[in-house]
Structure formats: C-alpha cells, structure tokens
Lab assay of single mutants.
Amino acid sequence: VYKEIAITNGCINRMSKEELRAKLSEFKLETRGVKDVLKKRLKNYYKKQK
C-alpha cells in the first residue's frame, strides 16, 4: 500500500499545474490555489481512496 502511495506521489510531483487542475476537476475537487496546494489536495484524495 505504501509503495502505491509513493508511486502516485511521484507522478503527482511531476505534473504541471494544468495537469493537476485537470485531474482535480475529474474528481470534482477544488481547482483553485497554488501548485503546492493542488498537489497536496490530490495526494490527500488518493490517500483517502486507499
């Protein structure tokens, strides 16, 4: 499980701001904020899904 999260986090870290926004809107999450906030939001979402 932790390895999956680590791989997902690595992918998220390599995403551009536009990619992050697209992914967040896909999951109907808030898309406003600076890049670091968007990354954190997406990581938290994936963590809750596990």
Rank of each mutant, 00 (worst) to 15 (best):
V1K: 13
V1D: 12
V1W: 11
V1P: 05
Y2H: 14
Y2S: 15
Y2T: 15
Y2D: 15
Y2Q: 15
Y2F: 13
E4K: 08
E4P: 11
I5C: 14
I5S: 14
A6G: 12
A6M: 12
I7A: 12
I7K: 11
I7Y: 11
I7R: 10
I7S: 11
I7F: 09
I7Q: 11
T8K: 12
T8V: 07
T8N: 11
T8W: 05
T8P: 12
N9M: 15
N9S: 12
N9Q: 10
N9C: 13
G10Q: 11
G10E: 10
C11D: 15
C11H: 13
C11P: 08
C11L: 13
C11W: 10
I12H: 02
I12Y: 03
I12T: 05
I12A: 02
N13G: 08
N13R: 06
R14P: 01
R14H: 10
R14N: 10
R14Y: 02
R14M: 07
R14K: 15
M15Y: 04
M15I: 04
S16G: 06
S16F: 03
S16R: 12
K17M: 05
K17L: 04
K17Q: 04
E18P: 14
E18N: 15
E18L: 14
E19F: 02
E19Y: 04
L20V: 04
L20W: 02
L20P: 01
R21H: 04
R21C: 05
R21Q: 09
R21E: 02
R21Y: 03
A22T: 13
A22R: 13
A22L: 13
K23S: 07
K23P: 01
L24P: 00
L24T: 02
L24R: 01
L24I: 01
S25Q: 13
S25A: 15
S25P: 07
E26Q: 11
E26M: 08
F27S: 07
F27P: 01
F27I: 14
F27R: 09
K28A: 11
K28T: 07
K28Q: 11
K28R: 13
L29W: 03
L29M: 09
L29T: 01
L29R: 04
E30L: 04
T31A: 09
T31K: 13
T31R: 07
T31Y: 15
R32T: 07
R32A: 06
R32E: 04
R32H: 07
R32L: 03
G33C: 04
G33F: 00
G33Q: 00
G33R: 03
V34C: 12
K35P: 02
K35E: 04
K35S: 05
D36V: 07
D36S: 15
V37R: 11
V37S: 11
V37F: 05
L38F: 04
L38T: 00
L38H: 00
L38Y: 00
K39E: 01
K40W: 00
R41I: 02
R41G: 01
R41P: 02
R41F: 01
L42W: 01
L42F: 05
L42R: 01
L42Y: 00
K43R: 06
K43L: 04
K43I: 06
N44G: 10
N44C: 09
Y45C: 06
Y45P: 00
Y45H: 13
Y45R: 01
Y46G: 05
Y46A: 13
Y46V: 15
K47G: 06
K47L: 06
K47I: 06
K48T: 10
K48Q: 09
Q49S: 09
Q49L: 12
Q49I: 12
K50T: 09
K50V: 12
K50N: 13
